[in-house]
Simulated scan of single mutants.
Amino acid sequence: MKWLTAGVLALGLSCGTAGAQDDDGALVTFQVLKPEIALKLAQTAMEHCRDEGYQVGVTVVDRFGQAQVYLRDRFAGAHVQDTSFRKAWTAVSFRTPTAALHEETSPGKESFGIRFIEKALPLGGGLLVMEGGGSIVAGIGVSGAPGPSLDDECAQAGIDAIEFDIAF
């Protein structure tokens, strides 16, 4: 039985290396934002909205959709915590800005069913945060401005503030 296990293992290893040129081992590496950078991202987005006269909530999630930072301005509505998180989660989960998902999931479109996934919120205000090489490192969601496109503007202002920190 030992020779069979060893033979199958050897065959698997030889076949695996012949056809998988990009296979560099059993582990993967990825990058996420340091908490200080995630906080800078959220603060800048909130401050941009405040300067425009909007009271918002901002959530930054890591590439896996886990919350890293949540900030709520003093007069932001009660809904902004859940909404900003869902926008950030949706952006990283579907690897698409939520404004684009709004269009792609409208009634009659092939992806309409996404709207029925519990956490998904295909409404502008959720953006991907990409490092210089094009990998997702976070998502940001903003909620509370008087329209989804304005939430997008605030989120983008946050991303612009950390662009130098993540462009390698």
Rank of each mutant, 00 (worst) to 15 (best):
T29S: 07
K109N: 13
I136K: 05
A99E: 02
W3L: 15
I159A: 09
A167Q: 01
S84K: 03
V61Q: 01
G12F: 14
S111L: 15
D22N: 04
E118Y: 07
F94V: 13
H79T: 05
L71E: 01
Q66I: 14
T96D: 06
T44G: 09
V92S: 06
G25K: 01
E36L: 10
L39K: 11
V61H: 09
T98N: 07
I162P: 13
E52N: 10
A161V: 13
L71D: 01
D23K: 00
T5P: 05
V60Y: 07
G147K: 05
T83C: 11
T5Q: 10
A67K: 11
E47A: 15
G139E: 14
M1V: 15
D23G: 01
C154E: 03
V129C: 10
T90Q: 03
D73A: 14
G25M: 00
R50L: 12
L33N: 08
R115E: 03
K40W: 08
I159M: 09
D22I: 07
Q68K: 04
G125D: 00
A6M: 11
Q21C: 04
H79P: 11
Q81R: 15
D23F: 01
Q43Y: 11
A76D: 05
G57I: 10
G77L: 14
F85V: 04
G158E: 08
H102D: 01
P148I: 05
H48I: 13
V58W: 14
V137E: 00
S93R: 13
G7H: 00
A42G: 06
A6W: 15
P148Q: 06
D23I: 00
E36M: 09
D151S: 05
V61W: 14
V129A: 12
A45H: 02
G158I: 10
Q55T: 04
E110T: 08
S93M: 08
T90L: 05
G134N: 14
V92M: 02
V92D: 01
L71Q: 01
I166A: 05
Q66N: 06
A6H: 10
T98W: 03
H79Y: 10
S111I: 07
V60P: 00
T5A: 08
D165Q: 14
K34D: 06
M46K: 12
L4E: 06
D73R: 04
F85E: 05
S14C: 15
L39R: 08
D24Y: 12
P122A: 10
V8N: 10
E103Q: 11
D23P: 00
L101D: 07
S149W: 06
P146C: 02
C49G: 03
P122Y: 15
D51Y: 02
K40P: 11
G133E: 12
